[in-house]
């Protein structure tokens, strides 16, 4: 468990709602939930969630910190925005879910084997390298995300599609060699570094 996590446990001792309000994007809204359940009923992935949004909000108010932050629930959100459109209290539920996921990850509490979390990291790492997504590399890293054996199996299954894409020039094998990037990758890295500094200062991360 990270230092940052310990720090936050110490700081908000026993009041998870306040912690969420301070550290999670749109966390201020959590207290306004009136437990009608429209969000849970509207979520296309609702039945697959460990805790639907309504329960997440109740868990936060009931001080169940570990249960919320360790949950895979927020990672199930596909950003369809059904819940936001329908929430009678106007809670930005989608944003709160992403905010909670981000916060859990930052604390080092996000579930380790969660597919969405894993892919999100792969996507981010791929993107920031050159400033452009390298689809060939991203695709392959997705195939091999869960080990070599599964990677080879998936690659073979997809080979006809891959060859077809090569033939119609939708994919270039040359992308394997570094690939193309944005005009000023260095500048982008500087921007992202600064953004990270600002954000961490805001929520009080010291040497995470």
């Amino acid at each position: 468990m990270s230092n940052y996590n310990n720090e936050m446990v110490e700081k908000f001792r026993g009041n998870f709602l306040k912690e969420v309000e301070a550290n999670v994007e749109e966390g201020d809204w959590v207290k306004m939930c009136m437990q009608c359940g429209v969000c849970s009923g509207s979520c296309p992935l609702g039945p697959h969630w460990e805790h639907p949004p309504q329960e997440i909000f109740m868990l936060i108010r009931a001080n169940k910190r570990e249960e919320v932050l360790n949950s895979s629930s927020m990672w199930m959100c596909t950003s369809c925005y059904n819940c936001i459109a329908r929430c009678p209290r106007g809670l930005p539920i989608t944003h709160i879910m992403h905010g909670l996921a981000t916060y859990a990850k930052r604390l080092g509490l996000a579930p380790k084997q969660q597919a969405t979390a894993k892919f999100a990291q792969l996507f981010w790492d791929n993107l920031v390298k050159t400033g452009r997504v390298n689809e060939l590399k991203l695709g392959l890293s997705l195939y091999f995300m869960n080990g070599i054996g599964e990677g080879i199996k998936t690659s073979l299954k997809m080979k006809d599609i891959g060859l077809g894409m090569l033939k119609t020039k939708r994919m270039s094998p040359m992308e394997m060699l570094g690939g193309h990037g944005c005009k000023d990758a260095k500048g982008l890295h500087a921007i992202l570094k600064k953004a990270k500094e600002i954000e961490e200062a805001k929520i009080g991360i010291h040497g995470a």
């Binding site: 709602l17 207290k31 306004m32 009136m34 437990q35 109740m58 108010r61 009931a62 209290r89």
Partner: peptide, 14 residues
């Protein structure tokens, strides 16, 4: 009034 109560931090539990 309910909303004002929530804003003041009253916890509502079903």
């Amino acid at each position: 009034f309910y909303r004002s109560g929530q804003e003041k931090g009253i916890t509502f539990r079903k």
